[in-house]
């Protein structure tokens, strides 16, 4: 919370003009009949996704020229709020003129992007992001019907949230791109975890293979590790001396993670970096041993030399390691 959150944003005012305009007057709302499509010598594909009970449902119509698999016309019908209608409309717009194979590549992110007034301002506030989630799924479904293949073949993906049909990869990507830190944010962005809530954490209505809490924790860990590795890389390039204290500690941690920690853990111990003090001659790294390392005879000899050697090699040969 801070000053800007005290009143909070007015939901509808945060919509882009495009969303508002298309909700008021959708351009591709309607149906394509079998007769129409056949009259043009084309094939009609109609696919449903979502249901009224989910709060959003969309039916996508494709008129496809069988000669080159090109979508010559597309329409939609939608049960949903303003953002759902506007994003369905833009989705059909994006499909028209593409081949089925090209259309399958349209993502929810493309749909949301197409609704923006300016490239760097989101078209809808975070809690409305989920309204464009269905575009991706309904397109896959339509393409599967046309090509006579299982829609699952387009995505070698694991579905984490069955209600909102959100995949593991989508979740990881959304967490990374938007730097999400809570499950609530994930639900705002993707709709995952918004319905039966089984996929949030163990102990829900159904047992799941993957849970949002774990995916979030794992992805956050990956992000942190990458940051550390980056810091360590920077250190390798000789920048260690110019890093801030936090960066230094992260870089040291990264080196310890890569070279040392596994051996300590194997023996039931661990270590943590307490402080880093630099002088003209030395960089003193203060560490504390944890668990079995504490009091182990090797901790002041072999292990200590190993830690120091690794840090010297990777970061700076001025490093001295001092256990406290």
């Amino acid at each position: 919370m801070a000053k800007n959150d005290i009143l909070g944003e007015s939901l509808w005012d945060a919509y882009s003009n495009k969303v508002t305009t298309l909700m008021n007057n959708p351009q591709h709302q309607g149906e394509i009949t079998q007769e129409e499509a056949e009259g043009h010598g084309n094939k009609l594909i109609v696919a449903d996704f979502g249901a009224e009970s989910c709060g959003d449902a969309v039916r996508l119509y494709w008129e496809i020229d069988p000669k080159d698999d090109r979508i010559v016309n597309s329409k939609f019908k939608s049960f949903g709020c303003g953002t759902a209608i506007a994003s369905s409309d833009v989705m059909t717009e994006l499909c028209i003129g593409k081949t089925v194979q090209e259309a399958v590549k349209i993502t929810n992110i493309d749909v949301e992007f197409a609704l923006r007034d300016t490239p760097d301002v989101a078209a809808v506030p975070p809690q409305k992001m989920h309204c464009s989630v269905m575009a991706y799924d309904v397109i896959k479904k339509a393409a599967g019907l046309y090509l006579g293949v299982d829609e699952a073949s387009f995505e070698e993906e694991i579905i984490v949230c069955e209600c909102a049909r959100v995949s593991l990869n989508t979740l990881k990507e959304v967490i990374r791109i938007n730097d999400l830190t809570t499950v609530e944010q994930i639900t705002d962005y993707t709709k995952a975890g918004g319905f039966c809530k089984s996929c949030i954490k163990p102990g829900g209505h159904e047992d799941r293979e993957y849970y949002l809490v774990d995916i979030l924790a794992d992805t956050r860990k990956e992000i942190d590790q990458e940051k550390m590795a980056k810091a360590a890389d920077a250190g390798q390039k000789g920048d260690f001396n110019t890093m801030t204290l936090v960066q230094k500690i992260k870089a040291i941690d990264a080196v310890v993670d890569e070279n040392i920690r596994q051996f300590l853990v194997m023996d039931g111990g661990d270590m943590e970096v307490i402080d880093v003090k630099s002088s003209d001659e030395n960089i003193d790294v203060y560490i504390r041993y944890l668990g079995a390392c504490n009091g182990c005879s090797s901790s002041s000899t072999g292990t200590l030399y190993a830690i120091e050697a690794a840090l010297k090699e990777k970061l700076s040969n001025k490093i001295r390691v001092l256990p406290i």
Binding site: P26, Q29, E31, I32, T33, Q34, L44, I45, V46, A47, D48, E52, A57, V58, R59, Y61, F76, K77, S78, F79, I85, L145
Partner: peptide
């Protein structure tokens, strides 16, 4: 606009 009232049924 609603899919619930659409006439052309899914493939």
């Amino acid at each position: 606009i609603s899919s619930s009232y659409a006439k052309v049924q899914p493939t």
